[in-house]
Amino acid sequence: MQSSVSLTISGLWIERGERDLCKDFSFSAQSGEVVRILGENGAGKSSLLKVIVGVISPLEGKIVYSGEDVTLDRNPLQQDAIYIGHSVGVKNLLTVAENIRCYCPDVSPETLDTVLKQLDLLDHIDALVRTLSAGQLRRVALARLWLTEKTLWLLDEPFASLDVGAIALLEERIQLHVSSGGLVVLTTHQDLRSLSCRDVALLS
């Protein structure tokens, strides 16, 4: 993990269809912070995360990651980031282990077992993902957070479909990540119990 990273967004203008989601939106964050993007449904929280990670392009604005302007080429940011969106990129026809190994090919069997045990997925390690519940499917996607060394986490509604135990576990993991120099930007409508975060409001 890098010693210190920063993310600065300035003058961002996002348009979806014919609708302005945000105009002249700015914020900055650095290592050790959890930034929660707040806003009503449809305010553009998910779009904002997609813009940061480079899935969609803004009409205007500047994105600087660790001092480097990545507005036109997000590759430096992508190399150091995990993005988990609403659709989590988990394959129904692969097993839990196969899905995780696709994203984290170097993980050892022991580490994988330990993480899956924490996430209460060890019994399903060889089960096809299509046989799992929505909450379990999201846990499969979130397992990557335990297994990669990326510094910037962009999480879109990460607590959706999770039970109380899994929410507490994820909050604990996020806390551990930021205390070791990570940076987390997330969107959620959930009340965070143990996680201290800085709120950034996205006004329509």
Binding site: R74, N75, Q78, Q79, Y83, S87, V88, V90, K91
Partner: peptide, 13 residues
């Protein structure tokens, strides 16, 4: 496209 893998390809670096 349905399961979000396309997005993950785009942001994979």
């Amino acid at each position: 496209f349905r399961d979000g893998s396309l997005e993950q390809w785009v942001v994979s670096g």
